[in-house]
């Protein structure tokens, strides 16, 4: 049990500091973008959120492979929390992207931006992860099917981006195109600091969720041993592994 709680405090402190530094850089250090002005600063939040959430989805698939290979519940839990957190991050990413689009192009939604469209499709797909888990009653089957879903969809994420990109005759907003290479030094530093901060935030939240869920399972197990089988209320249906 302790393995899930170990390093939690250190990780939390590191996350808080990095996040503060990143925000300070965004607001006080990096200069305004020449074309877009203040609104462009959302880029330092939006892009890391998007990147981290997409990596999170793929990570969920990787953990799912480990679950199917080993059959250990902990891997199912990791896969679940990875996807759960990625979903939360990607909704935040979608909203921040939408705000950015409104600020710089005047529309809340633009179809000409393939990254955004592909991102939406991925989110819609992963929105079915929880309902799928919830609608399978047998715990083992739930975990197994969720793992299969996570693997297939994890592989689907990059393919989907490629196909959607092909479909748009794209007029790219210049800032996303730069891949860091042409970014001025100050922007690059701020961007990578933000990316690190958001990644740490993702890892920390994932660890917290893992710890909470594992602790709940463990207390239940102990209660059952202490009070006997009959004293336990049956588990309700749940989308989370239990």
């Amino acid at each position: 049990m302790t393995t899930h709680v170990r390093h939690l405090r250190g990780l939390t402190i590191a996350t808080a500091i990095t996040l503060l530094v990143a925000l300070a850089l965004v607001f006080f250090y990096v200069p305004f973008d020449a074309n877009q002005g203040f609104i462009q600063k959302i880029f330092y939040i939006h892009v890391p959120l998007a990147i981290v959430s997409l990596v999170g989805y793929v990570l969920g698939g990787v953990f799912a492979v480990a679950y199917l290979r080993t059959g250990e519940r902990a891997w199912d839990m990791r896969s679940y929390t990875a996807i759960h957190m990625a979903l939360i991050f990607s909704v935040a990413g979608l909203v921040s992207g939408s705000i950015w689009a409104k600020g710089s192009w005047g529309h809340w939604w633009v179809w000409s931006e393939p990254t955004l469209v592909a991102y939406l499709i991925v989110i819609l797909l992963y929105c079915t992860y929880q309902p799928l888990r919830f609608s399978i009653e047998d715990f083992e089957r739930q975990s197994r099917y969720a793992a299969v879903f996570a693997i297939v969809c994890g592989a689907f994420v990059p393919i989907n981006f490629m196909v959607v990109r092909l479909s748009v005759n794209y007029l790219h907003p210049h800032i996303l195109n730069l891949e860091g290479g042409n970014l001025p030094g100050s922007m690059k530093l701020t961007f990578y600091t933000s990316l690190l901060a958001i990644s740490l935030l993702y890892a920390t939240l994932m660890k917290y969720e893992m710890a909470a869920k594992m602790t709940r399972i463990e207390t239940r197990r102990l209660r059952r041993r202490l009070l006997g089988e009959d004293a336990m209320r049956p588990l309700g249906r749940s989308a989370a592994p239990q």
């Binding site: 929105c127 079915t128 799928l132 609608s135 009653e137 196909v163």
Partner: peptide, 20 residues
């Protein structure tokens, strides 16, 4: 087919996967 809401779960997963 193994879920309770199979008529819902099928299209919900299927449509995004079919999009490409």
């Amino acid at each position: 087919v193994h879920t309770r809401a199979r008529d819902l779960i099928g299209p919900m997963i299927g449509l995004p996967l079919l999009l490409p």
